[in-house]
Amino acid sequence: MTTATAPGGAPEKPAPAAPGPAAPSLASRIAGLTGHWAVRLALVVIGLVWLLPTAGLLSSSLRDPADISVSGWWKIFDLNGSFPWIIDRSQLTWSNYEALFANEQVMDSLLTTVLITVPATALVVIVGALAGYAFAWMEFPGRDWWFLGVVGLLVVPVQVALIPVAKLFGALGIFETTTGVVLFHTAFGLPFAIFLLRNFFAEIPRELLEAARLDGAGELRLFTRVILPLGGPAIASLGIFQFLWVWNDMLVALIFADSTNPPITVALQQQVRQFGNNIDVLAPGAFVSMLVPLAVFFAFQRQFVSGVMAGAVK
């Protein structure tokens, strides 16, 4: 075996070995073992605390009003028994929901809320998708300046426009009508819709659109056959945001809706003002009002997550 020599004749020293990865310390090993379950435990605790008011509302909606007035909602659990987490069924009743469905004012308000929310959501999604496609893939004079104007409208608060829009709706004869509420929600929902969908549509590969144009597809067919299927997650996310905002809105409904047949948020507020202590109607009404947006969210949950994460990873 020969030994390598330097130019001067002296044996060449072997190169030092590359340092290996440092051994993890005891603290890092403990953190690695406890990190996963600690995070999960913290998320479970936060989720339970977050759901606590909802559980209290459900419990109150199923209890007799006389029991609610003398004890808290947690009394449905048999705290003095051997199994304190077992629900005492003797305290539960469906009479509150029977009274709710027999209340014509509340049921009419639920229908009014649907008649406001569905058109306001559909108009925002349709117009926002068309405008987002135009800003993303169509060329027209001043396109970028128009889009900057749309982005600027995002910072305009709703409260600034209440009085001017009320005067405008009064002159047009649509003040305190369902049409006026729908138009107001549509106008203030469009800037965010256009901004969201334009940015999503702009991420679609140009090659797909060029291939469709080579096959003879016009703008309308390109929009319906290429853009809409690929933009489904973003459109679903927008629909959920708009639906939740309109359904849970109280300020706009309180000002622009018909006071004799208002949406459910205003109707429940009127119930408090008129009767004060009718928890047998307020609790089930609030819970039913909460179930509808929850059902919409869970129905489009997968598309919502995809739309929120779109563009996060390149």
Rank of each mutant, 00 (worst) to 15 (best):
W74N: 03
G231V: 07
L110N: 09
A295N: 00
A217C: 10
V165W: 09
G232N: 15
G218V: 05
D258M: 09
E219V: 13
A22S: 12
L208V: 07
I240V: 13
D108K: 04
P141C: 03
T178S: 07
I194R: 04
V292G: 03
I76M: 07
R206D: 05
P233S: 12
S95H: 08
S61P: 02
Q271G: 07
A295P: 00
A23I: 14
W145G: 04
T186C: 02
I194L: 06
D108R: 06
L153F: 14
A18D: 04
R213S: 05
G173R: 13
I174D: 02
G307E: 01
W74I: 02
L48H: 08
I46G: 09
W85D: 11
S25C: 09
N199D: 14
E203W: 00
V182T: 12
F147V: 07
I204R: 04
L220K: 03
E98R: 05
P157C: 03
G35N: 05
A66T: 15
I174Q: 03
V226W: 08
P11K: 00
N278H: 09
F256E: 10
D64Q: 08
A23W: 08
F304Y: 15
T2H: 06
A286R: 05
R198M: 01
P284E: 06
V252A: 10
L58M: 15
A99T: 04
F184N: 04
R198I: 01
A120T: 10
F184V: 14
V49D: 10
D78Y: 09
L52D: 12
A23C: 01
A15T: 08
D67S: 06
M290K: 01
G56L: 04
F195I: 02
L62W: 00
M138H: 06
D78S: 14
S60G: 11
A202Y: 07
P263V: 12
G81W: 09
E176N: 15
L51M: 15
P14D: 08
V292F: 13
G56V: 12
F275K: 03
T260K: 11
P191V: 08
M290H: 05
A23G: 04
L209S: 07
E210Y: 08
A6R: 12
P21N: 10
T265I: 11
L197Q: 01
D67I: 02
V114Y: 04
G285F: 08
E98K: 02
F298L: 11
V246G: 06
G149F: 05
L154I: 07
A253E: 10
V160W: 06
T117E: 00
G142Y: 14
T34I: 13
A31E: 13
L251E: 01
L228A: 09
I30L: 14
L197I: 00
T224W: 15
V114A: 15
W245C: 00
G189W: 05
N96P: 05
L244H: 05
T177S: 12
R63I: 00
K75V: 13
P229W: 15
P11I: 04
T113V: 08
L41H: 05
K167Y: 12
K13A: 13
L79R: 15
L148G: 05
P263D: 07
A161N: 11
L58R: 03
I255D: 02
S25G: 15
A267C: 01
P141S: 03
I240M: 01
